[in-house]
């Protein structure tokens, strides 16, 4: 019985991390149609922000609060200097952000060195029967669903969300109604970057911090968002649940690496059957 509870908790945790990490990409790629290959490096910069804050003696929680601000500003700068020249040129955007990704990994390696730095995981443990679980992973699960809910609320119930969705649908009409679409793109991109920074910051104490941190996640989060399909937030959540389930079940049976392979194979077969993604047949929305 305890084993079942702990396994279920593990699966829930895998799904929650997938959602938390993929959410920023869901906004940037799903809404704006920008394939940002530097997304994983946004996660990495978020994690390094937490490392830098804790290294100066502040608590992890302050680091997690600062990470989205730092990465959001980074996203703002990148949007202004690179991305805005490339809207509508999807493959060129991919190539440029790929260069950006390599450059960011290189720069962080120059500043912080190539070694893995640990951050102490706060909050301690609790026990279920004979199993010990970390309280922090409960925090990660709660955080994932809270951020998901806030993002959903932001895009569906606020004026910014309304204008952003309208801009993605028809920038010319929005522009005729007196809104500057360039600013909306800028804000949405920075918001997506901030979400990635938050995700990287929250995961930092669990994964350890290393310049190539993003590589471990980039494949997963892109597959999740692609399989999610056109209904961005709920599609990503559903895809995260399905793929997270496949990954954790195979991982329990063998090793985490085979879990990832199974997840990728499953995703490719799923895309053969549902080319529009899981949410392809749903009503269009956010």
């Amino acid at each position: 019985m305890d084993f079942v509870a702990v396994t279920a908790f593990g699966i829930l945790y895998t799904i929650a991390t997938l959602i938390l990490l993929a959410l920023g990409l869901a906004v940037i790629f799903g809404m704006m149609g920008v394939i940002n290959l530097a997304q994983a490096e946004f996660l990495m910069v978020g994690a390094y922000t937490v490392l830098a804050v804790t290294a100066h003696g502040a608590s992890v929680w302050i680091g997690i609060a600062v990470a989205p601000v730092v990465v959001g500003l980074l996203g703002l700068v990148i949007e202004r200097t690179i991305i805005r020249f490339l809207y509508g040129r999807i493959l060129d955007t991919m190539l440029a952000t790929w260069g950006l990704s390599l450059g960011l990994v290189g720069l962080v390696t120059l500043v912080f060195g190539p070694t893995t730095e640990g951050i102490a995981t706060p909050l301690g443990h609790f026990t279920v029967g004979e199993y010990r679980l970390s309280v922090y992973s409960v925090f990660v699960i709660l955080m994932a669903f809270a951020v998901l809910g806030l993002t959903y609320g932001l895009f569906n119930y606020t004026r910014f969300g309304l204008v952003a969705r309208a801009t993605m649908q028809n920038p010319n009409m929005v522009s005729a109604l007196g809104v500057n679409p360039a600013r909306v793109y800028m804000g949405t991109f920075a918001f997506g970057a901030a979400l990635a920074g938050l995700g990287g910051g929250v995961m930092a104490p669990l994964t350890g911090v290393v310049p190539t941190l993003g590589l471990a996640f980039i494949a997963k989060i892109f597959i999740t968002v692609i399989v999610g399909g056109p209904v961005i937030l709920l599609g990503t959540t559903t895809a995260g649940a399905v793929l997270g389930l496949v990954e954790s079940l195979v991982s329990y049976g063998s090793t985490p690496i085979y879990g990832q392979v199974a997840m990728l194979a499953f995703a490719i077969i799923l895309l053969r059957l549902l080319p529009q993604g899981i949410s392809g047949f749903w009503r269009r929305g956010v």
């Binding site: 790929w98 960011l104 390696t109």
Partner: peptide, 19 residues
């Protein structure tokens, strides 16, 4: 590391200036 940074910069510059 320097090569990586240079490579990344080259990619961005080519895409922006010489697509």
């Amino acid at each position: 590391t320097y090569t990586t940074v240079a490579l990344g910069a080259v990619l961005v510059v080519i895409v922006l200036l010489f697509p």
